[in-house]
Design a protein around this nucleic acid. Sequence first.
DNA 1: GTGAAAGCGCTAACAT
DNA 2: ATGTTAGCGCTTTCAC
Lengths: 335, 335
Amino acid sequence: MRARTAPTLEDVARQAGVSRATASRVINADPRVREAARVAVSAAVADLGYRPNRAARRLVTQAADSIAVVVPESDERVFTDPFFSGLLRGVTRALATTPLQLVLVMGKPDDDDRRMERYLRGGHTDGAIVVSHHQDDNLWRVLAETKLPSVFLGRPYADASRLPYVDVDNTTGAELAAQHLIERGCRRIGTVTGPQDMSAGRDRLRGWTNALVAAGLSVDLVESGDFTPAGGAVATRHLLERAPDLDGLFVASDQMAVASIAELAQSGRSVPGDVAVVGYDDNTAATLSRPTLTTVVNPISEMASRAVDLLLRVMDGQDVEPEVLSTHLVVRESA
Amino acid sequence: MRARTAPTLEDVARQAGVSRATASRVINADPRVREAARVAVSAAVADLGYRPNRAARRLVTQAADSIAVVVPESDERVFTDPFFSGLLRGVTRALATTPLQLVLVMGKPDDDDRRMERYLRGGHTDGAIVVSHHQDDNLWRVLAETKLPSVFLGRPYADASRLPYVDVDNTTGAELAAQHLIERGCRRIGTVTGPQDMSAGRDRLRGWTNALVAAGLSVDLVESGDFTPAGGAVATRHLLERAPDLDGLFVASDQMAVASIAELAQSGRSVPGDVAVVGYDDNTAATLSRPTLTTVVNPISEMASRAVDLLLRVMDGQDVEPEVLSTHLVVRESA
DNA sequence: GTGAAAGCGCTAACAT
DNA sequence: ATGTTAGCGCTTTCAC
């Protein structure tokens, strides 16, 4: 009859005929243990179904055994935008092979005073991945001060942080999108941007601008969005008022692009017939949309797992370089 | 100058001029402490910015300070289906006012052997909320055996478990949907069901059947889906082959309904002109879809927070009764 | 009502 | 290479 309570390291040691310390060494892969002892302990662990008590380990190592994914956005946004689903999926998968647990920390900075900052400073995690970083977020400062190993997913707005990051080449991505529109024959091309206090938002606007300038087209049709469907709809409406002859549109996120298409339909315009539309992200919204979206791939899951790799290396004390992934366009029905 | 390391209970006690034990009592709201001591300790806590060390507390109380949300589905599904986003949002919010942490446990039972079962048996959490329960999942057995406080979100397939649950009246919801189609004048009405090894799938089929039988219509046009867009598309195609004269369709989830509409369009049929479509869930897919979806409200976030309330009470040793929420139809463009 | 002391399960010096 | 020992920060008897 197996004992009611979970087996402890003590039990393992006794059954293996060694001391607690040796058992601990085996479990933590310390090299200096005899083969025989190693085998005995491993057998005991398997037999007893031993699992180290996390709380006890944390208490003594002062490590949290977890990493935080920090998202300075409302839970509403986080749980509603496919971008974040992809993010969470990537992080979850990358963490699956480690003993690390994922702690999701979200909320606008002002939401609950400085809850996030307190959490980060509290030493509750061994590392952090910061996503959706805005210009005014002082997260990078907190992170630098606490020396908490951390990496940004998406280049931080100001490079001043000197913190490692993984990003995708948003500028080129947006250029690809705009060029596609131009090659299609569009001449009156607008854009609904992402937030201009985020590097992704700015880079995508820059890419769009680059392409239009190169083609000798006017770059006046810019309306700013905030990556939400509602914001995208408003921006599109404004664009239409300013340029009823709009024939091409680059929208900085798929979620906004879907809203744009709805607005366009509302105004009696067909897509891509009257207005060709290119989105950004290539998430579920792109394939669920009618027409399906021509869009730029934003490999969020891959970026997430790369960010985890990077973070693991930082936590290991290694020096790391930022990583920037390349991207490409996926042509579907909308343009 | 503040100390580099976080203040401990010892520090608080010293500053308040009491023993560690008394400080602990104040923090845990033990009634037997003098008012003066209570005030002194509280002041010290505030002054020092003291936060109890979770690991230490866990170690001694043997409690995990966390609850698990158990989803026997692939991470792909969980992070892709808006239903689960709503779930997570509801749980997160309900937990915000407690010191409990959320641990997401997901994966098909066979995915990683019996990882889930091990986790649940391991005593790593103080309670569990089980979502998306299938007929063959033996989770309820594990839960009953371990006596881990738990509640199902969505009635378990077999009531045998005697475990508390919160559910929504799926049968009535589906009836509402079918009745709407009937009142609209549809006479050849089909349905794409949810998985028949889940109570939600069966209840929704039952509701559809009830309504059609009551109206004297044939109930032969049933094709089973699995709540995924791909499954919904296939089922719709089959339905169309069997009944080219289909004029009404009840789809058991919004995600599948969107796929159905795409299939319908593919076959040259308009919605709602040729075929009226009603979905189920009322999540983001419903409003992002073109045409927008007429659908039945599935108040997942509310169910989630109710489930948390229920679980908290179970953890507190109280007896609880299952809760079943009512629902209603939201009429939009698709029917 | 309060303090002293034991101990939760583990790791990490420090011996040997 | 291995055992002994001392805590990590907290709660909880058990005395007083």
